[in-house]
Structure formats: C-alpha cells, structure tokens
Design a protein around this nucleic acid. Structure first.
Length: 406
RNA sequence: UUCCGAGUAGUCUAGCUUGGUAGGAUAGCAGGUUGUGGCCCUGCUGGCCCGGAUUCAAAUUCCGGCUCGGAACCCA
C-alpha cells in the first residue's frame, strides 16, 4: 500500500515540526489581536466555482455525494471566510481580525514546495479600508517569518500596487493588459532580454517603461509621481514598516482577478524556493458572493515551502529537549508512578519507563528520543527517600529528596 | 495535462554497461555490561515499486502502469 500521490505521512518527529509551525502561527496571531476560526473541509463545489469559474474544477478534488450533489474538498479557505461574512457579517463588529490554519487539497502535479494536501496559515482583516489594516497584515507576516528565526537577510517581502500597474498600463498605452500582467508575473523566471522583447510587443514606449524596472524605491516613487500616478498608499507602507524586510517590486501581481490594490509575496533571498507567503487587498469578494461591500486584506502561508526553507537553514528546533524520562530499576512502578505524577504537577513533561529494560538501555532509549533529563529511581533510592536526577548533556547527577524540590 | 530523470531493507547506497547466490552503511531488536547513555564488539530482523514480455535464467533487457524529483502550464 502506497500513500496517495502528493500526500504525506507525519511520523511523530514530523508532526512535531508541523505543530511547531502551527504554534508560531497561532501564538503570533493571538498576540497581535487576531482570532481563530475554522470551516468544514468539504464544501459545495459552487462555493469555489462562483469565484474562479468552472475551469477551477480541474484543480479541485470534486465528486458527487450519494444525494447527487457536487461537492469538493476545500482548496482555500477565503471563499469559506467570504461565505461566513455573507451569512453572519452584518452582526459582527468590524474590523474583523481573523486567522485560520486550514488543511487544504488541490488536484495538482506535486512539485517542490507543492503538494495535493497541505496546511496553509491564513490571516485577514475584514471591514477596514485604511492602509493601516494592510500594514497590520504585512507586519504580522514579517513578525511570523522572524519568529521562525529568519532575518531580514534571509527573506524579502516584495510589495506592489495593482492600481499603480493599471496606471502604468494607461499611461504607457499597453495594448494587451492581460499579457502585461502575465509577463510581469514571470519576469523573475525569464531572461531579461526575453522580457524586453515581449515588452516591446506590448507598448511603443518600452524604453522608458524598462527604465522603471531598474529604479530604486525612492527614485521609482518620484518617477511615478512625476507621471501623475498616485503612490501614497504604497508609500505609507514603507514609511511605517521601513525597508529592512520590504521591497517595492513592480513585477508582483499575483494571479489575475481577486486582488484590488496592494499585493505582496515573500521570497527567500536566494530565490531558491517558491513564495513563502502571498496576499493583498481584495475589496470585492464578499460583495461578489452576495454580501455587504466589505474591504478586506489578508495573506496565506503554506507549510511546504516553509518547512523546506527552515530545514535547509537548520532552524527547526530540537523537540524533546525540555521533556524528561523516569527510569526504574527493579519492580518499583507503583512508587515511580507517584513520582511521575508529582513531577507532572511541577510542570515537567515526563515519560515513565514501562519496559523491563535495564538501566543502561533505558538511558539509551531516553537519549535516542532527544530527552536531556533522566530521573532514576530504584530500591536504594526508595529506601533513602531520594530520586537521582541526571543531566544527559553535562553527565552530572543530583540526589533529590523525593518528597520535596524535585 | 505535457516533457525529462529516477525508483534496491525504516533510511542511504553498491550491483545494471557485459542477465547467472543481492553486498555494505545506518537505524531497529538481543547480548557483551543482572544499577548509569554517547565509543566499541557479536548476533538477529529486514530489500530489488507493480504487472507483463523476452530468456534455461531478469535487480539488470524490453513494454505498460504507479510513485518520487525537476521543468512547462497553473498557482485562488
């Protein structure tokens, strides 16, 4: 029996790594005032086709249920969030700062950083139009990446404005806006000569347009302003958040519809992996699904690319370091259980020996699990009313009275 | 969906050109050491992705499939 294509088995160590991701995502979100929500894994397929068209079915796990209904496994949580807002949005105080860590499914050919089943952290602010909502979202994204011990040298969040791109399309008289978007999207992947060539086909004024792509941020802002383009919203983001982790990048556009103005994606500095996260402002989604006219901004961050990056940089923590093992010698399980419960009350996570292994093997067992503290109890200790506490890293032992101060 | 490459114990890998007993490392288990780990020694367990074809004989050649990796497309 093989695993289904594009899925993973999570052995305890691997699931610990996942839980580490989950806990960083969750803790940082809560610290920053976000609240967690969840939604069903299975949905009516219409929820997803309504936004993205029938073609999306090719990328969905969809099937008929026994009542002949078209259903699918969710491929993203944003439509579900929108559905919530259509149903319950009116009664909720805005702005909403919500996050979720859904398990998602996409019918795709698996590649590096891309699976059929994966987890994706999502954070959104709904019902606030000001740029501060967007800044708050990007700030959360930065804080989360940094919490994974990545620094401004390891990653950059590339930010852009679709409204600026639309102004460029107008001012440079670009004849095929759709093609221009696609070209921008693949700018990083293709050769600069190829880029220029394709740009030439789109506008006569390609020379001065090409110059824009080489300008540094402040000069670019000035140049755009000179051309009568409003850059204030994007500029504000840089004014508040600085440029340690941010870059103004005209080539970030993210997909074709859905986003209305500011968009952003985070990449590792080596450009070795796919985007770590991506998001932006989407002001029409709730309205389009039949709800209120609610402005929104958010981002999604998958587990696959993040895990690859963290393991490459050796930033995944050693997971059992803070737990302990209680070794027993001879038949003293009954007393050991009391000691174990006492230690648990003291806040120690403890694994009590249940095997008939000798002490030597028990210590090996603890060590192989990455445990750094071993408590030892046997006949001698019970007589004296003590427990031995052994530190496996330093090798030092302490005798501790078992009725106090363990 | 298209193109390219690869699949050998839990993991990594030799063998494939030239068909003929699948070998090693590591992990696991037991012991050396019946109360103190990491090193070392001994033993044990465990494998040619699946199906078909060719052949006296296939890990090896051929065909199909599956999975993995890479690329295209797409990436909400």
């Amino acid at each position: 029996m093989q695993r289904y294509i594009g899925t993973r088995d999570f052995l305890p160590n691997e699931w610990k790594a996942m839980n580490y991701l989950f806990s960083v995502w969750r803790d940082l979100s809560i610290e920053n005032g976000f609240e967690e929500y969840e939604a069903p894994i299975i949905e009516d397929v219409k929820l997803f086709t309504a936004k993205s068209g029938e073609d999306i079915k090719n990328q969905l796990f969809w099937f008929k249920d026994k009542g002949d209904r078209d259903v699918c496994l969710r491929a993203e949580i944003t439509p579900q969030l929108a559905r919530y807002l259509v149903s319950y949005g009116k009664g909720l105080k805005k702005p909403l700062k919500w996050f979720s860590i859904p398990r998602l499914f996409r019918y795709e050919k698996p590649q590096k950083g891309r699976l059929r089943e994966f987890f994706q952290f999502n954070a959104d602010i709904i019902g606030e139009e000001s740029v501060y909502a967007t800044i708050e979202i990007i700030d959360l994204a930065i804080k989360i990446i940094k919490s994974f011990k990545l620094t401004g040298k390891d990653f950059k969040i590339r930010v852009n404005s679709r409204k600026i791109i639309d102004s460029i399309i107008r001012i440079f008289k670009i004849n095929d806006p759709l093609k221009f978007y696609l070209l921008l999207d693949k700018k990083l992947k293709i050769d600069s000569k190829v880029f220029l060539k394709e740009l030439m086909a789109l506008t006569q004024d390609y020379k001065s347009l090409m110059k824009l792509f080489d300008l540094k941020r402040n000069d670019l802002f000035k140049e755009l302003k000179n051309k009568g383009i409003n850059v204030e919203r994007l500029k504000k983001i840089f004014d508040v958040l600085g440029n340690e982790c941010l870059e103004f990048d005209l080539s970030i556009v993210r997909g074709l519809d859905y986003y209305t103005d500011i968009v952003f994606e985070a990449f590792d500095s080596g450009n070795e992996f796919r985007a770590m996260l991506g998001g932006g402002e989407y002001n029409n989604l709730v309205k389009d699904l039949g709800g209120e006219d609610l402005p929104a901004v958010g981002f999604g961050m998958g587990d696959a690319v993040l895990l690859e990056l963290l393991s490459q940089k050796k930033l995944l923590p050693e997971f059992n370091k803070n737990s302990a093992f209680l070794a027993t010698i001879g038949d003293c399980y009954k007393e050991a259980l009391k000691i174990k419960n006492f230690l648990i009350e003291k806040g120690v996570s403890i694994d009590l020996n249940v095997s008939s292994k000798n002490l030597s093997k028990q210590i090996q067992y603890a060590e192989s699990k990455g445990i750094s503290t071993v408590y030892i109890v046997g006949e001698k200790e019970l007589k004296k009313g003590i427990v031995i506490k052994k530190d496996l890293i330093t090798g030092k032992e302490k005798k501790i009275k078992s009725n106090q101060g363990i």
